[in-house]
């Protein structure tokens, strides 16, 4: 499946475009043509200035853990897992999780991470993160 033609403003659903690019193995982040700020999650109007000329730029997917929690779950249901907020270097924040942690390593605030796109069988691809050092 290929991504729809980039269309600033109204038209193709920005949410669907995001996932279509992830299916193609690309992470792209919206930027406002008026105020130049990054935007996440993707939408139709710039939430910073109301600008309508939004374009999508390729992202290297590097960022920093802004906050983190561990959800406690019984082992038989799959065990504990982390949920994090990541600040991408472009200046946008997103929820995700950090995979590929070594043994007993805990995710920590301030940790450098890099994006990994995980294809899913019956759902949109999942954007997760791994410690930067282990994912170069």
């Amino acid at each position: 499946m290929s991504a729809p033609t980039p269309h600033p403003g109204f038209g193709a659903s920005p949410e669907r475009m995001h996932f279509a690019w992830l299916r193609d193995g690309e992470l792209r982040i919206q930027f406002c043509g008026d105020c130049e700020k990054g935007i996440f999650y993707p939408r139709s109007l710039c939430p910073h200035c109301g600008g309508e000329e939004l374009d999508w730029r390729n992202s290297p997917g590097t960022g920093t853990v802004h906050s983190a929690t561990v959800v406690r779950r019984p082992d038989k249901a799959g065990g504990d897992y982390n949920v994090v907020l990541i600040d991408l270097d472009e200046g946008v924040r997103m929820m995700s999780r950090v995979d590929m942690l070594a043994g007993s390593e805990a995710v920590r605030i301030g940790q450098r991470v890099r994006a990994v796109i995980l294809p899913q069988d019956d759902a949109d691809p999942l954007l997760v993160f791994a410690p930067e050092a282990r994912n170069e």
């Binding site: 906050s67 983190a68 949920v83 907020l85 929820m95 999780r97 301030g110 949109d124």
Partner: peptide, 25 residues
């Protein structure tokens, strides 16, 4: 919330936990 749901935050506690963890940090 399509950009949060796939990560299974146990909400509302997980959202407040992220705030608490940041406040502590």
């Amino acid at each position: 919330d399509v950009f949060e749901l796939p990560y299974q935050p146990f909400n509302p506690p997980s959202s407040y936990a992220l705030v608490a963890a940041r406040h502590m940090h």
